[in-house]
Simulated assay, not measured.
Amino acid sequence: MTVQLDARPPVAPKADNPRPSWGRLSRLDTRFSPYLYIAPFFLIFGVFGAYPLAYTFWVSLHDWDLLGTNHPFVGAENYTRLLADTDFWHALVNTLGIFVISTVPQLLAALWLANLLNRGLRARTGWRMAVLVPNVTSTAAVAIVFGVLFGREFGMINWLLDLVGVDAIGWKSNRFASWVAISAMVDWRWTGYNALILLAAMQAIPRDLYEAAAIDGASRVRQFWSVTVPLLKPTIIFCTIIATIGGLQLFTEPRMFHSGTNPIRGGPLRESQTLTMYMFENAFAPHYNFGYGSAVAWLLFALIAIVAVLNVLILRRLGGGSGPNGRKGAAR
């Protein structure tokens, strides 16, 4: 007796078709979820950033007495008055002078320090933590200490200069000397911070690039300028922009440096008054003119934007390199 077996596989019961609404919800979730994730940032920025910025511009178009209730509309009068004010141009020159003297040495020193910390030093972690100590120190405390160091009569800097036959310098009464003193304070605080950022970028550079350059006969100095610096260009641009924003907004350092003589004016003759100090002087005591102070703030905003764009354009044209993972700029 022959039994024939059915070779066909059993047919599974048909599953219910998923509802079309689930597929539609999945597509909507994929499309709109990223916007929901980033929405809190833009919401907070709009409330605490964009709205105050726009409102400040609106205030700058009024004669806005902080102690009064009537704020008449004056249009661009605050800006025309500002551009004709010699104290504004004096503060602008001070701001740009301190910015140039402090930013250029700061970034060069940070680049050198990062390259040093990138080597096989003993206790590297300790050294890397140590360079960040000045940045976490109170700005007011640093300014007071530097104010004593750069004192004319009993300051350590003048004492050291006297040992080599240099006459005492009035660091707080001489305009250029006060720029140098404040720049030294700024560099001491921020060089280590920028060095750690550059160090992190250096550690992301592939080691085979250095090995190839060494095989080609490139020295360590040649490797640094032909491999390291070009591949650090995006990070250098970032550090330059951050230094630009901070350097053009200096307030605490010059104010505390002249803590004993007209601090908000940067000295008796405005030797080191910056734009932020000039804005504070007009917006608050003794003038209480919010409209004029807001005009200063907007011109400072425009100055920062212009200088930052110029820095980016200049740095993009200097050196080679195409990014952290590029090969352009390696020594041949």
Rank of each mutant, 00 (worst) to 15 (best):
Q4Y: 08
L5W: 11
P13M: 14
P18N: 08
R27W: 10
D29S: 14
Y37F: 09
F41A: 15
F42N: 04
V47A: 15
A50S: 05
T56F: 01
F57D: 14
W58D: 15
S60W: 02
D63Y: 08
W64S: 04
L67N: 09
V74P: 15
N78D: 04
T80Y: 15
R81D: 14
L82F: 07
W89N: 13
A91S: 12
T95M: 09
V100K: 03
I101C: 06
I101F: 15
V104S: 05
P105C: 05
L121D: 11
M129I: 13
P134G: 08
T139S: 09
A143K: 00
G165M: 11
N174W: 08
F176Q: 04
A177P: 00
W179N: 03
S183G: 07
R189I: 04
W190I: 01
Q203Y: 10
A204Y: 01
E211A: 07
A212G: 11
A214H: 06
A214E: 10
R220E: 09
V221I: 09
L231R: 10
I242D: 11
G247C: 15
L248G: 07
L250Y: 10
F251Q: 09
F251K: 06
P254N: 00
R255K: 05
R255S: 14
F257E: 07
T261L: 03
N262V: 05
P268R: 15
P268H: 12
E271P: 11
L275P: 00
L275I: 04
Y278A: 03
M279V: 02
A285G: 00
F290E: 12
Y292H: 08
V296Q: 09
L300H: 04
N311H: 00
V312Q: 13
I314C: 12
L315C: 01
R317L: 06
R317S: 12
G320Q: 15
G320K: 13
G326P: 02
